[in-house]
Nucleic acid binder design. Sequence first.
RNA 1: GCCCAGGUGGUGGAAUUGGUAGACACGCCAGCUUGAGGGGCUGGUGACCGCAAGGUUGUAAGGGUUCGAGUCCCUUCCUGGGCACCA
Length: 798
Amino acid sequence: MLDAYDPSAVEAKWRRIWEERGDHRTDLESPDRPFYNLAMFPYPSAEGLHVGHMVPYSGVDIHGRWRRLHGDNVFQPMGFDAFGIHSENYALKIGQHPARVMRRAVTNFRENQLKKIGAMFDWDHQVNTSDPAYYHWTQWLFLRLFEAGLAEWRDGGVLWCPSCLTVLANEQVEGGHCERCDSVVEARWLRQWYLKITNYAQEMLDALDTLDWSESTKLMQRNWIGRREGARIVFDLAGCERTDVAVFTTRPDTLYGATFVVIAADHPQLEEFVPTERRGELNAWRNRLPGPEAEPDFSVGISLGSWAIHPLTGQRLPVWAAPYVLNDYGTGAIMAVPAHDDRDLAFATAHELPVIEVISGGGSNGAFTGHGVMVNSGEFDGLPSEEGRKRIVERLATARRGEATVTYRLRDWLISRQRYWGPPIPIIHCPKDGQVAVPDDQLPVLLPEVEDFRPTGTGVSPLATVEDWVNVTCPRCGGPARRETDVSDTFLDSSWYYLRYPSTDFDDLAFDAERTRRWLPVDMYIGGNEHAVRHLLYARFVMRALRGMGLVDEPEPFKRFRAHGMIVKDGHKMSKSRGNVVNPDEYIEKYGADTFRLYLMFLGPYTAGGDFRDEGIVGVTRFLHRVWHATQLATDRDEADEVRERRRHGLIGGVDEDIAGLHFNTAIAQLMAFSHDLDQEATAGRGRRIDAETLLLCLAPFAPHITEELWQRTGHDESVHTRGGWPEHDAALAARTEVEVAVQVNGKLRGTMTVAAGTPQAELRQRALELPRIVELLDGAEPRAVVAVVDRVVNVVL
RNA sequence: GCCCAGGUGGUGGAAUUGGUAGACACGCCAGCUUGAGGGGCUGGUGACCGCAAGGUUGUAAGGGUUCGAGUCCCUUCCUGGGCACCA
């Protein structure tokens, strides 16, 4: 009589043994088949991990365990993205110091949650971005970028969140609102640190084609980089200090339709575009402009009183300024072609500016933005616009008034944050020497302990108030100087953490060259598509920059990336504020980690996501009970059974293929079907031992605890998770010898027949026509055609 | 508005990529198991007609290509995601 399956006892037992034996530690020095299996690390919060985290981690672990069974030396680390506004805001809310809050949250995440799902994370290589041992090297990284000319301190119009009291990167603003707190953001002009990611726009765009990533992710990156081909066209100016202005357009073919020129309202040299006497008026207007609200208003603008000279016709076009033209895209100025651009048309209508159609084909309403035949375009009349575009650019080039050019929508990466909870940017501002790097041997610049870490709202970080920390001597001239008081963006922390994991045991360098050569790029990276552009793009940039410095060999950090789906609850992302968080702890306690993992993976396709509900979990419970029963009762040693060998090899190949493609749900379906058969045989006393072993090995990545227990119980001393333990697969043995072929009449199923696999078409036709049912339906008639597809179908056409 | 991905039983989802639609589960129904609880096992279960054999119909809607369409093409609707004053 078997004892009952008690998940909590089994799981506690093996968690303890694995930890004692160090089963999840990876020998990083071994040159043998390294496989870097990476999951995006979480930011610790007080809420703890919810089901939305457990799904991805379970999948990552299944994939890692599967690689290990295939013989790879799998490194599967985990860490914590513990710096940043998220963490700080929470600390502010509960009125405790973020360092303390994070210590507690990290412990909870690791000990009470991550360890309990039975994942084989190598905790010897954990990373915590808020730990000085880590951010020492984040600062080091910043200095390398600084030295390479990729970090720049400059003025910029920035987006400011009045509630978070800090600048936001473009990506942190959604429709004019702060993505964190939803406040309406304001525009400010501040001196900030930018990383010059735009230098790599083209390279990163091109390299996407070489990456094995989810297509959806690559597409988002392509759109984000936003390469646009067009022309830069120079207009001479009259009536103002400035002599000319360049505009960018993707439609040089519409040049003859330009009826005015618009300069961005926040153009830094806007004053140069007006007659001197009107500067006061201009500035007054500028100061009254509303902030970057969600809804753009295309009617807002001011005539500057100066003129732009059309480079081909010599006509004088009025120059305007308007906020609908963006300063940080293209050249910050446009030629307005109201007939062929909706925004220009709206502006022209509001200000009664002329509209000239230069591409025929438009209807009566709105601007025509398509292509067509050119009209009102002088010598270019009659040309198709695609052709005219080239000709006009050629003409401009000869006249030295323009050239073909490419513009990207990607902006430089603004990393300054006027907050407390981040790595201080390791720069010293010296009145004499300017921006001076903190010498490497003085790193890390420790985040000073302060009582009041609340953001100040004045545009400077709370660190600015720590006088004895701020005031230093200049490393270059020894004179009095001040530290940079902003901290860096969290995304800088996470832009290089995959480089740190393999080298956490080196405290005198960021990453060891040899280790890095061996372990990077990451072989498999799994994470959410919410990081498709920012994190993944920043990481790619950092890797490329480091390679440019000769510090790493590879240009790309992640060889393969797969986006998992997002698990929602009642149609919404899980969040405490919404009150729809599903806590995994309760499920693990009630059903066990194995059942829970299996259930999460069985819910639906891993890369699709879906709505969480727990209706079917009992199905998985039954499945594991059956495995418990079947494998222990299967003792028959008949290994020569051809039919059952076919089934067994089918399982091995099928599960293998499914895991490789991250189709965990269908892999589990196969395991269920197999266990069902085996259980019936085992109950009848003829279950094969080899089938039991195969089932346990194939199930091991999904349900690591129960399979380990049963492996031991069925007489094995070594672990079921041993490297290289995946059962051998012989596709030939898995191949079917008999197949059922469908017989259709006019495409409708009318019967089936069982034939030997590979039966040729001619024989299939003949046998189909001999079927009594078919003879009956034919009723003596001669079929017009009989289509036969080997091993599939015969279609009799009447 | 633009760009993606997707719409399959009562439910979650399968479908070798143009070849027997609904695998595997949940739920439900019936039967068995004599420890009455959300236990275990066996069988059934898209809809409609039929005692049955069998037939008709069926993958968001409509059209098309094909011997054959959930799968390919066109149009429309809906859902999810990304971008959205980026010239």
